[in-house]
Design a protein around this nucleic acid. Sequence first.
DNA 1: CTGAATCCTTCAGGATACTG
DNA 2: CAGTATCCTGAAGGATTCAG
Lengths: 132, 132
Amino acid sequence: MSRSPTRVTDALRDEACPVTEVLDRVAGKWSIGILIAAAHGPVRFTELERPIRGISRRMLSLNLRRLERDGLLVRTVHPTVPPKVEYSLTPMARELHASLTGLVSWAERHRSAVAEARAAYDDAAKRDPGAG
Amino acid sequence: MSRSPTRVTDALRDEACPVTEVLDRVAGKWSIGILIAAAHGPVRFTELERPIRGISRRMLSLNLRRLERDGLLVRTVHPTVPPKVEYSLTPMARELHASLTGLVSWAERHRSAVAEARAAYDDAAKRDPGAG
DNA sequence: CTGAATCCTTCAGGATACTG
DNA sequence: CAGTATCCTGAAGGATTCAG
């Protein structure tokens, strides 16, 4: 996953794929999951932490900030005790969410197909290592 | 397996988590670019290397193999001299390509918006580091 | 409850050189 | 032309701890 800029390739990357920069906002391990989870409405920190299994508090926090910074999430703090913070998608992110669900549905439709392809590929390679 | 009636839980636990595995096939720095470039039709190695500026031969090779292994690309070797190898999308990948172009067009539409959001966010943080 | 700070590991990806 | 092999860096992410 691509992350932050690398030196030499920076200019080139910008030249070839202006989009990659923006696409990278969603390229992390958790971004898509967070956006999908947050799309259900104003959601609290712990309400995100629970369903997104496996995510650490740290990564949730970091991704939340980045998403907010990129104008994809809105963070609302309620000055109560204990503190209550809610996250929701911006209109821009809602558009993105539509495309994301497209991706997700594709992934669901082809989950097993991909698994089978990999198995077949590996098996073929094992039986015939020299082929190509 | 908490069965609490949260709005977020069902959707994400069943949707995003298993999906992430498949989505990760596309999550690399170059995968999307490669798929989009290869969508034009049968494309040779160097024909991919050129437009996808900044990609190293190594990464192109690695990603090509992974994409092939996952059943997204077909690799066709023509036994000629010099060697000629062509890559094209599988039907499954063509479906994916449709979703991908959706993502790309979103990214193009909102490229500047994201940049501005980031600038505003950073600026606000700079002037008022304690807020939140 | 909602984070921030710190330390440590893993691994994608870059540079470079070699090959059929 | 179309790759492979090796070495290395830097960023992502996990575990744990501290705090408002």
